[in-house]
Amino acid sequence: MSGISRRRFLAGSIAGCAATTLCGTQKALAAGSFTGYPEGMGVLVDLTRCIGCRSCEAACNKEQNLPAPAKPFDDMSVFDERFHGGTQMRRPDENAYTVVNRYEPEGGGKPVYRKVQCNHCNEPACLTSCFVNAYTKTQEGAVVYNPKICVGCRNCMIACPFNIPGYSYSSAFNPVVKKCIFCHETRLKNGRPPACVEICPQQALTFGKRKDMIKIAHQRILNEPGRYVDHLYGEKELGGTGWMYLSSVAFEQVGFDTTTGNEPIIANVKDFLGTVPMVLAIWPALFTGFHLLAKRKDGHGHDDDHAGDHSAAHGEEEDKS
């Protein structure tokens, strides 16, 4: 009788574990198909309008109370700066959440300026990679982070397909990740555009609901097909980004990664991550079951011995008392 009940118990527990795990897996898959908040805000960056005045950099510096820059914001020599053996242009860092770079398009013509900042992905890789959950995609569309939670592991810096998060290397005791937060705290959540959008003299940055920005972008391409490449960068790339770009020259010529594909970063790992709860929940129960089943045959005839052992032990205790 004890053997049958044990078998039932094991079968029941395995079924229970499997059910829990399957539910968990479904939830994980559902999380993978999240495509951002439909009412979230976005910015349409029109490279054909930017004149490289760097006012957006200055506005960001003031709004986010960032340290003084190495060079004034009206110093255009920064466009000639190169790093890593002359291969890399300026990138956002702990002192500057946005930078503008200048590109000379192939075949001559006017230089093209490109503003770089966090693109506020619909399904952010930084958020996916953060094991302490410091990142949040807000309903307004911003990807923000809580520096009090951040442990400074820099996983997000590796995960970000746009190389955006910077790191406060200057802080000896509490280094954390730093990046553009769409002016969420001071502006976005109060319905105001970010500081860079507001200062832009050319309206190279257009602010509104992301879904409206997509419509406006395609309308611009339709109205002036000769002016634009027929592509809105960020509409679909990596599951879509809050900040999207229109350009007059091929995107790879102005520093964009055109090999990202349209799948969000989480799609690379969600199948694998879906198996983790299964392994953690089913395997112990399953192999314990196998173990017990294997041992059951050996131990079946000794049930009485066990009972004898137990009573003997019990007897000893009684003796002691």
């Binding site: 003084a68 190495a70 004034p72 890593h84 890399q88 860092d93 790191y167």
Partner: peptide, 11 residues
């Protein structure tokens, strides 16, 4: 204007 060149930024 910045008085002296700040420490090199990390890239």
């Amino acid at each position: 204007a910045p008085k002296a060149a700040a420490s090199a930024s990390h890239h």
